[in-house]
Simulated assay, not measured.
Amino acid sequence: MAVRPWLPTLVLVAALTGCAGGGPPPGTTTPVPEPAPSEPSPAATVAAPVPWFIGPTEDGRAFEMTIGQTTTLRLTDPQAAEPEAIGTAVLLIPVTNVTAAGVREWEVRGVEPGTAVVRSTGEPPWEVTLTVAAE
């Protein structure tokens, strides 16, 4: 039987094509590494950007803002105690538009870098931490 001249080339091409896949041979399994335990990322502990409105419902939360940025502190209970700002990073500026429903509002303005706590000692007491950064 005569060897065909193209047969060695065909065998070589077939062998190279099989190696080009780079995967394991058929019928074998590859161990899958287990995921590493997740650790809290540093971003998880960073304060959130300040929302449009803050108030007692944000009790215990922390927010970030920049100098000149504002948010509105809104109290919907007309009998709620007056809020106060502890620290010099923000100013509480009363808004004089009074609604029939008794909603009271203050503009909270970031005025210098630092941290301030806006709180009320009424019932129930609440506080929100605001960190002000330079732009």
Rank of each mutant, 00 (worst) to 15 (best):
G110T: 03
A43K: 01
P37M: 04
T129K: 03
P56S: 08
V90W: 06
T28G: 08
L92S: 09
E39W: 00
I67D: 07
T17G: 12
F53I: 13
R104Y: 13
R74M: 14
T72F: 12
V11A: 15
A116W: 02
A62L: 01
A20D: 04
P42Y: 00
A47W: 02
A100S: 09
V98A: 15
L130Y: 05
T9D: 05
E123P: 02
R119E: 11
P51A: 04
A85E: 05
V111T: 09
P26S: 12
P56I: 04
C19I: 10
A47N: 05
D77S: 15
N97R: 15
V90R: 07
T71R: 04
E123D: 06
E58P: 08
W52K: 13
P94Y: 06
V108C: 11
Q69S: 14
L10S: 04
C19R: 14
D59F: 07
M1H: 04
T66F: 13
A48C: 03
L130G: 11
G21M: 09
P49V: 13
S41L: 02
V95R: 13
T96M: 10
P125D: 04
W6N: 01
P113G: 14
G68V: 06
E112A: 14
S38V: 07
G55E: 07
T70P: 06
A43V: 01
S41T: 00
L10P: 00
A100I: 09
L92K: 11
P24I: 14
P26R: 14
E112C: 05
C19S: 12
A2W: 08
A44W: 00
Q69D: 13
A62D: 02
A85M: 07
L91C: 09
N97H: 15
A62F: 01
T17L: 10
W52R: 11
T17H: 04
A15V: 12
W6Q: 02
T70N: 09
V95P: 05
P51M: 09
T131A: 13
T121K: 05
P40Q: 00
G60T: 04
